[in-house]
Amino acid sequence: MDIIVCVKKIPDPEIPPAKFKLDMESKRVIPPEGIPPVINPYDEQAVELALRLKDKYGGKITVLTIDNDADTSIVKHALAMGADEGIVLADKAFEGSDSFSTSHILSQAIQKVGNFDLVLCGRQAADWDEGLVGAIIAENLSLPLVTLAEAVDVVDGKLKVKRVTLDGYQIFAVPTPAVATVSNEVGQPRLPSGWGIISASRKQIPIWKAGDLDADPSQIGAKAVRRRLVKLFIPVREKKCEIIEGETTAEASVKLAERLRKAGVI
């Protein structure tokens, strides 16, 4: 089974709050100094799910990322885990993309890669958390979509996808090719292996530019953006401590309940 996995580079979600800074003017996150970005954890799980399918059915795994720094590190991370090929998509023309343009670029790249049975995305990118890209890719390519996949198998030539719900799961039978977004229930992704690191770090990763794709220029980059981010800010959370006094415990408890009701907590 041939699988394409879309992986995104994000700021390390473990950044201590004190180091998380925004540029409110350009509405961007300022990359924290000394803390390298990481592969989106959900995408790492998508790679893990792809590898489990490869372990069982064989086939080839190709990872794609749009990264305008042409940084190959997260693609190499996926290769070191066991993926076969990786491609970085980078071009000035991609600058300022939103979910639609991001998905357009990825859809074109997926078509250029060609032969595939399954496209996997993370359930959401852990920086912006929009969870849109997988769905828009499915729409662009007119493919069936299952979101929040926990497990995928092959039964009677069809994909059997287990989808997580709030209090249970659903099982879908889906014809190939298809798109699935992968949920964290997949569990811990494998570590890159020593041999994987050696071959990944010595591999040349192709960089595809806008011109390498059959992309519609009106669909990519800042000019294609269909919505505007009005404000990006870090909310200020205030902590206040109030001591509720009372002659007796019962009296204090009543006062506490009244105070909580006034605060709208109960």
Binding site: A80, L191, P192, S193, G194, I197, S201
Partner: peptide, 13 residues
């Protein structure tokens, strides 16, 4: 090198 960083991170994990 990139390879050294990858080994360091993997071994630490």
């Amino acid at each position: 090198t990139e390879e050294q960083r990858m080994f360091r991170d993997m071994a630490r994990k």
